[in-house]
Design a protein around this nucleic acid. Structure first.
Lengths: 349, 349
DNA sequence: TTTAGCACTCCTTGCCTCCGAGTGCTAAAG
DNA sequence: CTTTAGCACTCGGAGGCAAGGAGTGCTAAA
């Protein structure tokens, strides 16, 4: 059953007001904000029905009304005015995006930081990659008699490198030959297969070689493992304390420690809409049942998506957050979709 | 003027008790904890003098006593019992240290995380490096017609690498030649000098070459800058909320946002004692005037020191924190001093 | 120097009251 | 049938007050 226009209007006023002040709205205050002259008594009748229907509730008999999650949901779906970003807002977002972000891993975490700082809510960020990552290319570089550099390029184009000690001196040919061996036998496969292949080689190569191979393969396996186990970054948890609903230290503590200790369980978007809003109990996770989350995702080229989420009280300013977050995500996509990944973007418009 | 033994004993009981419960201690409670039979009246006389001398204070007339910063200081310097770590504690620390830490940068941050998690206090961590870092070695690796890998080894033995786009195709000789050029002209110098050298080359090399040189030098400059501007990691700020002194949300918020937004101003050890305790107003920074900080540093080989600090209320459990932190720092030093990490530089050239 | 005793201080807790914002309901008006 | 005015009622919050208790300082005796 559909709500009448007037009911919707009232609902919108209640949500808007409650978002702004965190105080329940009374019939009189609402009456004043309604266009046309309507008495508070009329409003009261409407309010009673909205409560009946489950869109509003009152913290106690005889106090104003506040939205229920169902109320927020309707608001978000239909009533919310599209917040259009002001020139300053876009400028400010563009400014945060200005700094160049080198490594994919850092990129994601930085995106989270920017969002949190810019929006004034805690945020979290992660990369949603594909799971089947392998090594695309090995390169060993001689440094001096005691060490060499292992460079590993992964199938998602990330490059990692590390200095490694050389337990025994080697002649000039050894490293290139080992590189070659690695590139022919150890690329394009997963970590377990790397181990298997390595085992097969035990008696085909000299102990010296095997030592080196093992060293590099260890490193590669470690990288692959890291890449598979996607990490989540959270920032700005302390921003929660600004909100009156978290004056209760215990509540704040619960949510904050959930965000840092249980990052992996923070919601990820279902379906493939670019932006998603989860209101209060819509969150599966208990710790989030009294909070809302806005999630957006963006492209980082190469089958990878970045994901950034904003956490706040159910009374979160959905319109503004959604607008900003979506602009943010679009900008990021444009940045990385257009110019490819780790490259420079300083020659941009 | 020295305190009598009995005064010290009383002071110790007050500090111990207040650390444990966050409640002021009364004369009666103290009397019970004193060895031998002493009446509460006697204790009262002593307490009055300790207040007079500035070691204790009372939140209001007629309430128990709590330690002043001066009191804590004496406690820390003389009275505190060395907390010796139990087998479980050391085992637990060793377990956290078990995981291998690859990159120097991550290492430092991970050390902070472990400390925070293990101690139950917020913590911060940074690396104290030398300032005059330069590039020791360049290496460019061809990948395909559209990109190459730049590997840069810094003078502190860290190795960084990144995939770069190739704006124009190059022949097989170009990259090695450019590497050579970079290695002969751009190693061992600071970021400004890199820029200067590059300018000098503008009309000596082809535009194509210059483009590539510029690309790599940009990257190198960025790395040097990053290395010089040491970054600080903070973790576990939410742990603050566990302490009753931070039930006041505003206080908690102030300190927490200080820790994340003003990391650079967190205290670093003065002098060269391996561990330092800063109590309340001994902190220069206003935001920390009501908190205490315990700092320890550890070696990461190669002239570099890691630094990790624990932040808590002045009523922090100094004995335990100090013991654990120092064990932690020692273990880290041992781990990296002894062996492997980012590398040893045994050949001097 | 220590101790017992006592009056005093001041925080905490619970209780009570008052106030006001806001409600639901009823009855009259449109 | 809907809207409005009026009125009694509810309930949380603020303020005041008294009782309780933990702890003190002081004094006088051991």
């Amino acid at each position: 059953m559909e709500l009448t226009d007037r009911k919707k209007q009232i609902l919108k006023i209640v949500v808007d007001g409650y978002i702004a002040t965190a105080e329940p709205l009374g019939s009189k205050a609402i009456a004043e904000k309604m266009p046309g002259k309507i008495s508070s008594a009329t409003i009261r009748n409407e309010l009673a029905e909205l409560v009946e229907l489950g869109y509003l509730e009152q913290p106690h008999t005889s106090s104003g009304r506040i939205p229920t999650p169902k109320g927020y949901r309707l608001y978000v779906n239909e009533l919310m005015e599209q917040h259009t970003l002001s020139a300053e807002e876009t400028a400010s977002i563009n400014a945060s995006l200005g700094g160049k972000m080198a490594q994919v891993d850092q990129l994601v975490s930085q995106a989270g930081q920017m969002v949190s700082r810019f929006m004034g809510y805690p945020s979290y960020a992660m990369a949603e990659g594909r799971r089947d990552i392998s090594v695309r290319r090995f390169e060993l570089i001689a440094v001096d008699s005691g060490s060499f550099i292992a460079v590993v390029m992964l199938s998602d184009s990330r490059v990692k490198s590390q200095l490694m000690p050389l337990t025994l001196p080697v002649d000039g040919q050894t490293l290139p030959e080992i590189s070659h061996l690695l590139n022919t036998h150890f690329t394009g496969i997963g970590p377990e297969e790397i181990s298997r292949h390595l085992m097969n080689l035990t008696d085909q190569v000299s102990g010296q070689w095997f030592l080196l191979l093992n060293q590099v393969c260890d490193y590669a396996r470690q990288l692959l493992q890291e890449a598979a186990h996607q990490s989540v970054f959270t920032t700005g948890a302390s921003q929660l304390l600004k909100f009156p609903e978290f004056r209760d230290v215990d509540k704040a503590h619960d949510l904050m420690s959930f965000m840092v200790d249980n990052k992996e369980n923070l919601p990820v978007p279902t379906g493939d809409s670019p932006m998603q809003i989860l209101i209060g109990p819509e969150n599966v996770n208990d710790a989030l049942k009294e909070s809302s989350v806005v999630i957006a995702s963006y492209d980082i080229g190469e089958n990878m998506r970045g994901l950034v989420g904003v956490v706040g009280p159910t009374r979160m300013d959905y319109a503004t957050v959604a607008a900003r977050l979506s602009y943010f995500a679009e900008s990021l996509s444009r940045m990385f979709g257009a110019g490819q990944l780790p490259a420079k973007e300083d020659t941009k418009e």
